[in-house]
């Protein structure tokens, strides 16, 4: 069997494993969905009643941000399960098998796609309840969802890298929670970045989360002409910028994660 076919075949086998795992441990997926549901309801009804956006409802503005928040949170779960696997013997077994070493991560991240599809569908339904609507042509909306999944896939490799570098579930969990808060909140997911003080605004507008949220808003039509136009390049060209960010993350973190995996299991 050649290397590529082996990687794909073994990747499929590991994907199956991870999908079964998600199915058998619904608490993981539940954890990813419940917090955002609470956030949607609180933000849409509590903050939404006080936050006035020119030309659009806060619910419409909020949901694309929630999609990306869910992606970041699922990433945390997968990183956490990866560190748990490292603590057990299962990776030792994998390493003594004549399988492609990269297949473990290929399969893990592929399984993550399913998790992300499920949680984005769930968030869309909650979104519809609080008044979120798609205003663009269906093919544009489909593109929006695909873009979200692409970013989610790239982000899986980022969390896999961090998880493999840290190795210990508790350490990973602490760091991931600490880092994901500013990643999500120092962005346009919940607030309009044009109203932030200048230094924070620069950080927020180059944040990949902002770029992906903005791209999703454009592709779903959750924008308003009355809103102040974003100043920086990535937000003015959000769709290509989101693609670039995803590509960049993949180029950097796929090889890095695979290298760390090989090192992590050869101890």
């Amino acid at each position: 069997m050649n290397a590529l076919r082996m990687t794909l075949a073994d990747g499929m086998t590991i994907t199956r494993r991870n999908v079964l795992k998600i199915k058998r441990a619904p608490d993981l997926l539940g954890g990813v969905i419940t917090l955002p549901v609470v956030v949607v309801l609180l933000f849409a009804y509590v903050f939404g009643s006080m936050i006035e956006l020119p030309g659009m409802s806060y619910g419409e503005y909020l949901i694309p941000g929630i999609f990306v928040q869910v992606i970041v949170m699922s990433g945390q779960i997968t990183g956490y399960t990866l560190t748990q696997d490292l603590q057990k013997g299962i990776f030792d077994r994998f390493r003594t098998l004549p399988m492609a070493p990269s297949a473990v991560l290929v399969g893990q991240t592929a399984g993550d796609i399913l998790m992300n599809v499920t949680s984005i569908v769930a968030m869309s339904l909650v979104g519809l309840v609080v008044g979120w609507r798609v205003h663009t042509a269906p093919q544009e909306a489909v593109l929006g969802f695909l873009l979200l999944l692409l970013f989610a896939y790239a982000f899986s490799w980022v969390t896999a890298t961090v998880a493999l570098a840290l190795r210990r579930p508790e350490v990973f969990n602490n760091l991931a929670t600490t880092l994901s808060m500013p990643l999500i909140f120092l962005s346009n997911a919940f607030v309009d970045t044009t109203r932030l003080p200048a230094p924070l605004r620069a950080v927020a507008e180059w944040n990949p989360v902002s770029v992906v949220v903005q791209a999703a808003r454009e592709l779903f039509g959750n924008t308003s002409a009355a809103m102040p136009a974003p100043g920086t390049w990535p937000l003015r060209h959000a769709v290509p910028a989101a693609l670039l960010w995803s590509a960049l993350l993949l180029i950097v973190f796929v090889p890095l994660a695979i290298r760390l995996y090989k090192r992590a299991v050869s101890r």
Binding site: M1, M6, A9, D10, T13, R16, R17, L20, K21, R24, A25, K88, G89, I90, D92, R93, F94, T96, L97, P98, M99, A103
Partner: peptide, 29 residues
């Protein structure tokens, strides 16, 4: 050409016994 079994049982908690062994068989191609 080898099989290895360690002191920390290298099995997946979430899979069934049959699924564990089938997975290993597939990874042996």
């Amino acid at each position: 050409r080898i099989g290895a079994s360690g002191q920390y049982a290298a099995v997946d908690d979430h899979l069934t016994g049959a699924e564990n062994l089938e997975m290993v068989g597939r990874l042996y191609h």
